[in-house]
Design a binder for these strands. Structure first.
Ligand SMILES: [Mn+2]
Ligand SMILES: [Mn+2]
Ligand SMILES: [Zn+2]
Ligand SMILES: [Zn+2]
Lengths: 136, 136
DNA sequence: ATCTTCTTTAGAATAATTATAAACAACAAA
DNA sequence: TTTGTTGTTTATAATTATTCTAAAGAAGAT
């Protein structure tokens, strides 16, 4: 449980002005026990439900991308009509329940280390992600 | 090198009428040595270049999805503004060169077998894909 | 208080994809 | 071959996620 005051400090330390909207979004996103996977639309609706106040869609986009740029959110590569984000920014893998359209974290020990044996001259590895699609 | 006649047969066997457009798309997609990674837009332009004739964008979408549904094309999960497809429909992994926006096949031996140790009740694994993002 | 800079916002613009419905082509049955 | 049926192509419109714009508002510094 992070206090409003702590979010304000974190935002300031990140050169992001602690506006009412950003603080609300912080609380919705980061005041939780488990990792949270969401689309912009999920978040937009959740904010209305949880805080009772509406934040404009443009602001939700702006804020999510600001947080993403600062490394506080991760983007998950799946083919969907909407982009998925993740509050767990560590390197980790996912199940994707295709029917429910839901992401589930995989612990690294559930997958084991992945050694990439091939390399491309002049390029280095930025990330290695496993996506396990689930069906019924 | 597959002949036009063979494409016609393959289309018929798949309950897809062998139209001029579908045969052309087959030739552009499948008459190649190496696996081909593309977006709808790539394909649309390539058809004009290679065959001199224009196929309507709607038909390119229709055909790609028809082929995808029949299992002749694979969809590659990456976050991009456009969806990527692959003529290599076997289970395999990818490099994605973020700067060039290009996919490169990884052989399974370049990655090694991936054992998923976790399972979700009532769900079974449909696919396991590794995406390795590359930067300079 | 005042000024500057950053942020929010509604609404417009963009761009990938999908839907529509009329013209057309493939196929099978006469 | 003609004819009828069904599947396909096409131009165009609709949809939808995302980004852009520019004006109003809020935060922070002086
Ligand atoms: Mn996750
Ligand atoms: Mn491939
Ligand atoms: Zn982002
Ligand atoms: Zn498809």
């Amino acid at each position: 449980m992070t206090s409003k005051q702590e979010f304000i400090e974190k935002l300031r330390n990140s050169c992001l002005r602690p506006t009412k909207q950003r603080i609300n979004i912080c609380e919705v996103l980061f005041n939780r026990d488990k990792t949270f996977h969401f689309t912009i639309n999920d978040l937009f609706n959740l904010i209305k439900d949880k805080t009772g106040e509406k934040i404009s869609l443009a602001t939700v986009y702006n804020t999510v991308h600001a947080f993403h740029k600062k490394g506080y959110l991760k983007e998950i590569p799946i083919n969907s009509n909407q982009t998925y984000f993740d509050t767990n920014v560590t390197d980790h893998h996912h199940f994707f329940d295709v029917k429910e359209e839901k992401l589930i974290d995989l612990k690294n020990e559930d997958v084991g280390p992945i050694e990439i044996q091939k390399s491309i001259p002049g390029k280095k590895i930025k990330s290695v992600e496993v996506l396990v699609k689930l069906e019924d």
